[in-house]
Design a protein around this nucleic acid. Structure first.
Length: 211
DNA sequence: ATGAGGATTTCCT
DNA sequence: GGAAATCCTCATA
């Protein structure tokens, strides 16, 4: 039985970003449990990564959580949106994975009350999924499992195929703008900017067996 | 389909 | 004052 902290810290951050696909986010709310499979992630590689908030180890009031241990939640606000990241290495190593897409499992009706749009547009982006979960930055700096938000390693799904691409929105950052640090479940409809013709409506890009 | 502009917090020049 | 790990609306085609 591998714990979440161990899972998040015993390999490189890009590998963790890929391994997170198919794992389950679980949020306990006063009116019910919300769960979803992770479908899309991005790796942010700390002090050396020109696209990361921790580039050159620059600490600010906003990004303190990145220097906390693996399993720490890093949430920050960009304009009107909140973005969810999970810290992936031991304390002092400011690397993280951004959660960019999730496939709702339990509590879909509650998610749609939080964010009243069609299911196809509910969680297909990092800001959208936070609206659907009803989260702001209250959980920033706390540990997974210590409050209401949890990462579950089982049950889980296996992607049939993992696709990669450059990270979204990282511009004018040289090689870091083109590095293939975005990972998503090929064919899954709950991925940002995915085209209709690329969607696998039957299996959503998952293998049939739930682990 | 694609693109411009605005909402609004945090950080940097 | 400007840009940013985003999303929505409105315009044009």
């Amino acid at each position: 039985m591998v714990g979440v902290t161990e899972f998040l810290s015993n390999t490189t951050t890009p590998k963790i970003a890929a391994l997170l696909l198919g794992k389950q986010l679980r949020l306990a709310t006063p009116t019910g449990i919300l769960t979803a499979w992770i479908t899309e992630t991005e790796a942010y590689l700390g002090a050396t990564d020109a696209g990361a908030h921790a580039f050159k180890n620059h600490q600010t009031a906003r990004n303190q959580a990145l220097w906390q241990p693996a399993g720490t939640i890093y949430i920050y606000q960009m304009r009107t949106q909140f973005l969810l990241n999970l810290v992936t290495q031991s304390a002092g190593v400011p690397e993280c994975v951004l959660i960019r897409g999730i496939e709702p499992v339990e509590g879909v009706a509650q998610m749609q009350r939080n964010r009243p749009v069609p299911l196809a547009n509910l969680t297909t982006g990092p800001g959208k999924l936070m609206q659907a979960l009803g989260l702001d930055k209250t959980l920033n700096g706390t540990l997974l499992s210590s409050t209401t938000l949890d990462l579950r390693l089982t049950p889980a799904r296996n992607p049939q195929q993992i696709a990669t691409s450059p990270r979204i929105g990282i511009v004018n950052k040289g090689d870091w703008s083109t590095a293939p640090l975005r990972y998503y479940v090929a064919g899954n409809p709950f991925v940002s900017q995915v085209k209709k013709r690329d969607q696998d409506l039957a299996q959503h890009g998952w293998q049939a067996t739930i682990i």
